[in-house]
Write a protein that binds this DNA or RNA. Sequence first.
DNA 1: CATGAATGAGGTTTCATTCAT
DNA 2: AATGAATGAAACCTCATTCAT
Lengths: 213, 213, 213, 213
Amino acid sequence: MLEGNRGTGVAARRSATRRVPRQERSRRRVEQILDAASRLVLERGVDALTTRAIAEAADVPVASLYQYFHDKEDILLALVERDRAEMDEQLLADLAGIDELSLPALVETAMRAFTKVYARRPAFVEIWLRGRDNPAIRERGREHSVEIASNLLQFAEAAGLLSHDVPPKIALLAVEVGERVFQLAYAQDLEGDQELVEEGIRMVSGYLAPYSR
Amino acid sequence: MLEGNRGTGVAARRSATRRVPRQERSRRRVEQILDAASRLVLERGVDALTTRAIAEAADVPVASLYQYFHDKEDILLALVERDRAEMDEQLLADLAGIDELSLPALVETAMRAFTKVYARRPAFVEIWLRGRDNPAIRERGREHSVEIASNLLQFAEAAGLLSHDVPPKIALLAVEVGERVFQLAYAQDLEGDQELVEEGIRMVSGYLAPYSR
Amino acid sequence: MLEGNRGTGVAARRSATRRVPRQERSRRRVEQILDAASRLVLERGVDALTTRAIAEAADVPVASLYQYFHDKEDILLALVERDRAEMDEQLLADLAGIDELSLPALVETAMRAFTKVYARRPAFVEIWLRGRDNPAIRERGREHSVEIASNLLQFAEAAGLLSHDVPPKIALLAVEVGERVFQLAYAQDLEGDQELVEEGIRMVSGYLAPYSR
Amino acid sequence: MLEGNRGTGVAARRSATRRVPRQERSRRRVEQILDAASRLVLERGVDALTTRAIAEAADVPVASLYQYFHDKEDILLALVERDRAEMDEQLLADLAGIDELSLPALVETAMRAFTKVYARRPAFVEIWLRGRDNPAIRERGREHSVEIASNLLQFAEAAGLLSHDVPPKIALLAVEVGERVFQLAYAQDLEGDQELVEEGIRMVSGYLAPYSR
DNA sequence: CATGAATGAGGTTTCATTCAT
DNA sequence: AATGAATGAAACCTCATTCAT
């Protein structure tokens, strides 16, 4: 599930031995910026993510942003990438922990994995679900859905859960519908309406049932 | 399913005998502006909807926009309102034409009604589904989904299609999921992937089946 | 004390016998507009005097303003002229009513005459004292002070109140200082601080005393 | 007589060894802008003080104004503050240089101190006396008069020049009348009519005489 | 005469990015 | 590497005035 340094316009070029080596300081600064950006997105929406605002929130000069990122879009993408990676990890870990594999179990596990990440990283909700107006995010979001769908499909096939060939399109539909369920469930507050999540799990499970072996 | 002239800052006030009466000319101009805005949203997204861009596309001075609309948001809302009204009409008409009422038939009819509107008004997809970043649109979009869900629920209850009380939340979830299906189906091209639409109809029907009488 | 139709870009052109003759209707409309403008200036200052605001307040189409006035400045000037005329009348009337003529009595009578007008026409304070930023008003204000100074000087000379020739400049200074006294006295509230007015009368009287016969 | 860096949105932060240090260059630019603004106000009045006009006159991009000032009002206030500070300094210096203290000497010295500043900074006349329409300036102007009146009163009391308690209102009236004298004296040309100034000094002195010890 | 409609000109402010140091 | 300063471009909106009817 790819490693994703796309979006980071900075190359680690390190030089010598210092107390706090360049590379390390740089990494910290990047985190500092991304954290600030994350906070901003969460609090005020994607549109409020101006360079000035990020810089202020991160307590970094505006010009310095361009030391670590190529442009504003780059920051946004890096932000997304960071959360996305965490999402993938969580998904992978939870899938590995399933006791009795079945298609419904797969669906439920995946969806619950996402809710865990949402709980930890509320900015994700904001960006992923509401920030879709931004072309870069929209594009990246679509890609990610495709990836997840593909990965889950592969996983299910490998585990012998499917009765026959399932077109990628179907898997993608399931993933995207799942996302919308989250969108609705997390629209009101950032805790998420768990009842709706349950309904969503039922819907997607039910939809995929015919493909189950 | 209200008529919705909200968002139109122009009032039809006088009439008179003229070749092209004032009122008429005014209406035309409003359409001209909305069409242009619609085109822009479709081509470049909601963020590209600047007053300047609209004015240029509509071949109208920027200042003239403010003859017909109170501010930029007003334009956006009028745009939405126009499509929304058409959607409601189509839905109403098609529901009235159903032969054998049943919950699945209801779902299918409703979803197909929407596809008809999408075909006629592609900008709708863009605004409704992708323009959600804009606070005004987001708010209005949410309202509309609630309305549709509520109307369909009432319709189904009145027709005795439901076995027991269905919480509004469930209906809303179904509507929103339906929207996402369309989003995906219409993502690639504006003709819409009909296969995906069929899948979506199956998914939503299946989901609601337990509530069917 | 001049007649002052300057500023009124409208010519009375009347035509025939009607219930409410043109001329009359026109005059009414002009008053209506001036009253509205007066109100606006009073409430929101000279800068808020936009054509749109005037039109709205007067319940008259914006375009119609141009039937009665040449341009916006014309309205402002007409406004000033109206109050100015009233001021002159009051001054004249009160001067005529003085029992025992003397220079101090003249000063006191004049200043009290102005306070009467201020009480009746609070917009005057706003325009005359605060609206000086507007070049037209500034110019007109200067003219008016010169007129008043000249008239009072003539009056005093005719009444044999002066011991010797008083340069116009001196009279003007006295008038302008008097105005500033009012400015200060009426700065806080529109009722005017009468104590300050008394002080002002004493100051100006004292200043002119050396010229008294 | 505070030092008044209010209105200056720029903070001097660092310094270093450079031919023309940052700080210095910044200060110059601020002066450049204020000088341009001053010129504009003088030539065309406060209303002509648009950001565009200032930028043009200062030969600086409009956007750069916002490097040094928070908004347009900030420029105006900085302008006022600059002149105001100079006025206070002059007043203080001249008061300190009085040989034989007396109330008339105090009045004369103060008024002559102002004429010195007017001679050096003609824009002051424009802003202070004619720009009062602007709310920010009006407010600041009022404050300043109160300050000067209060300071002079204190000074006179400390020097034992007053026979009994003089209400602040009286001092304020004297100061404001003095200002109007200047307004008139400097109305025609910027050299100022010295004869009128003399008259003004006499008037104010005479007015305050009763309070003299 | 009356006026709805139209508009060129201009208003202030913010933005993302680059540059000189 | 770091950053204060600089800025072209663009954002939305309002204004006074004119014109066609």
